[in-house]
Amino acid sequence: MAQPQTMDQAAAPEAGAQQATDMTLSVFRGDATAGEEREYRVPVGPGMVVLDAVHWLQANVDSTIACRWNCKAARCGSCSADINGHPGLMCKTRLDDFVGQVVHVRPMRTFPIIKDLVTDVSWNYKVAKQIQPFTPAQPAPFVMYQRDVDRGQEFRRCIECFLCQNVCHVLREHSGMDRYFGPRFMIKIAELEMHPMDTADRVDLLAGGGGLGFCNITKCCQEVCPEHIHITDNAIIPLKERTADRYWDPIRRLFRRRRTG
């Protein structure tokens, strides 16, 4: 572990300024080939979040620290990281929740590291391309009742921070990217499948390449979602039930055959 660098090395407080509390930030520095955590002392003010501290380091200690961010308001989903081992948005994680602790900031473990806190999340966009897009029964615009779009609107709150993908143990611990699309794309499929105007069928995809069966519904995706989307209860489990309708329920299958046949 590298020796802590303090603010004295960079920018000393102005004369007469009230002394701020210092905290130690241990930030991963490195790339896909090698890296280690380095400790920095950061002065902490009220309401400061982890992203503020990283920005302070960039401005005052080391401008080469790489970090992806855009809005600093939990809207863009760019600043996802592992903070003290737990996936979270750096812009939404307050430093005063860690008083007396070293704050370890690492890139998302599930995705390949590009540099420092920046990971390559392009796998997600490749997965997105495998999902049949919205296929409406008639050209837009549609007239729909609110109750018919409520479910989809919950899923559309997703900001694609990929924290759910990061915490999903199928992807994170079992390298299941070749078998399971992950929670983010389960809500994408649920949104499309539950849309009253959509005509496409993605149940076979779920049971096959989508890998829905790999999810063992331990709800971590739901716990970390910064948008509080009920990923497991409102998307994954209903999709499991729809898959069971087709593959595990001979009674339903019989009724379906009678209707179509």
Binding site: M7, E14, A17, A20, G45, P46, D96, V99
Partner: peptide, 16 residues
Amino acid sequence: MATPATVPAPQRAPKG
């Protein structure tokens, strides 16, 4: 950018 050197130490209680 926050201005940490001119503000008092954090007062908020940890979240539970």
